[in-house]
Design a protein around this nucleic acid. Sequence first.
DNA 1: CTGTTAGCGCATTCAA
DNA 2: TTGAATGCGCTAACAG
Lengths: 344, 344
Amino acid sequence: MAEQVRTGKVTIRDIAASAGVSVATVSRVLNGRPDVKAATRELVLDTIRSHNFSTNRSARGLAGGKTNLVGITLPNLHAEYFALILSGAAETLYDQDVRAVVCPTLHQADREVSLLDRLMHGTTDGSLIVLPESRPELRVLARRHYPFVVVDPKEPLPAGMPGVSAAHFSGARDVMDHLICLGHRRIAAITGPSSWVASIERLHGYQAALAAYGIIAPPEWLVEGNFQIEGGYHAAQVLLALPQRPTAIFAFNDNMAVGALQAIRERGLRVPEDISLVGFDDAQSASLISPPLTTVRQPLIEMGRHAATLLLRLLDGQPAEGLRVHLATQLIVRASTAPPPAED
Amino acid sequence: MAEQVRTGKVTIRDIAASAGVSVATVSRVLNGRPDVKAATRELVLDTIRSHNFSTNRSARGLAGGKTNLVGITLPNLHAEYFALILSGAAETLYDQDVRAVVCPTLHQADREVSLLDRLMHGTTDGSLIVLPESRPELRVLARRHYPFVVVDPKEPLPAGMPGVSAAHFSGARDVMDHLICLGHRRIAAITGPSSWVASIERLHGYQAALAAYGIIAPPEWLVEGNFQIEGGYHAAQVLLALPQRPTAIFAFNDNMAVGALQAIRERGLRVPEDISLVGFDDAQSASLISPPLTTVRQPLIEMGRHAATLLLRLLDGQPAEGLRVHLATQLIVRASTAPPPAED
DNA sequence: CTGTTAGCGCATTCAA
DNA sequence: TTGAATGCGCTAACAG
């Protein structure tokens, strides 16, 4: 009496038999094909329901050559940044009845590689690759026509690879416009690692704005950080020790802004009265710290969504080569920016 | 010339042919069976490597009856809380070469149900179910012998179901001990929904501590919140309007503590000078707000890890029925608690 | 519109 | 220790 209760052992054949049709017909309604008489469809649907049947994905994967699974490869899952991207992506995929297989690489390139390798082979139909470590590996995937979309590439993406990222350039430029409009002229920046596109493009935005206003930025205004809190802390220390202290600091992410804030405080200065501070990301921390941080919101959830949509399109056979999407950012003005102190 | 390059179309048969053995033998080495001559094994392994072969999971799933995939069902992925649990779980699974399929339910019970239903059927070997909405559904799964582990059950778990959660009771008691040792006697609590185990057990901890010190708590000291910021805000307003104002408020999570803090401030009171405030969770926000919040750290990542380990054990055939794990919490004392103001 | 049939790639008997 | 044969549950031609 118990044997039948086991893990949904109802197969498409049982349904076919019970409904008095062929397995092919059941398969058709299962896949929403149009060529089934309405009455038959209803009948089948009913028996499916009454038998509590649902299709075995392994079998479908084997037979149909697809798994309805896509991999999402990312450095980790606990960082807010990745969690949000994952969230947008997974939910979008879910709505299309595609499941997301998460693959944390822990920033280990080799792990990423072996992962992608296996992902390719019958495990998934395609992948979202967030902040990939390895460019060469990406090329291998592309060469084998494995469908994937890169989210927020760390380094510039080889031509022809679909990628989704935030509009770093305009985001940074917005920050600078804001600062300059407030009256700031001596605006320093704490950048990220110089090889990262996020750093590069934000830097370009920074420089473009400065140039637009005819401001000459001496090299001392630029200090390289590492996107971590302590990186921001140390960079800010350097900046604050400058003979001509900047009146504003643009940290290239919120983490570093938090570190910078600490350095500023330790030096007995106030934000924003003595010095304005801006971040980038609009992490949760940005609105929680005091003063609440003026920053740039990256649409992470939407990036995930968008990337998923793109991938789905690829899987659907639509060649989306060369698709490079930059989603608009939004300047969030909070309390960490104000006009510079009087010059006297 | 291009056909061969397609998605790793190398099959076990190709390997067999190329190595001059049978598919059965290849399958054996693939699965680490002992009954293969060392030389043969090496030979096969070599050809596998040179052909860049990796096994097709769908096929293995179909044939072997398992998928090496486990589902992780949770309300959403973007909340820090769930992201951390997922993180611990996914990484643990990954280490055992099991992949995690994420299934966000968006708090919709029906979605959870249909999900679990499909998960069961050939998609996954088992599931981690975080904060499940539906008790009945859990029973169905159990009845069908589908392996799963519940993480942080919202409502009490039926007997015999493996579950992992934080030690709510002792966590709450620790908070109270701390507060009472500081000299507080009028300690109010903002609870969560009364049906949730988290609320219930924390409340028991609260009451047990009070009782241990012979403190009689009038019913007004208890206000029910909803684990959200505004819930904490409104609850605190009620508490602060009490004729005999409490000298300390224990919010049953950090969110509500943040809301409470706001209400306290609006009333012109200071934390911790006028009133002490404690949360629960040790969310990121707890250390970022000012004053940094005294709270209870829930070992979320470890809960995920532990649950994954448990599930893996279940999948391994070890009957772990009735396993109910409570992971220890840790009191994190920060700056939101201090001795009560002098009585005068 | 519906049924028949042939695999998909692999694990697993059962023999040898 | 190895090979041959069978079928997992389903999809996708191809007929009818």
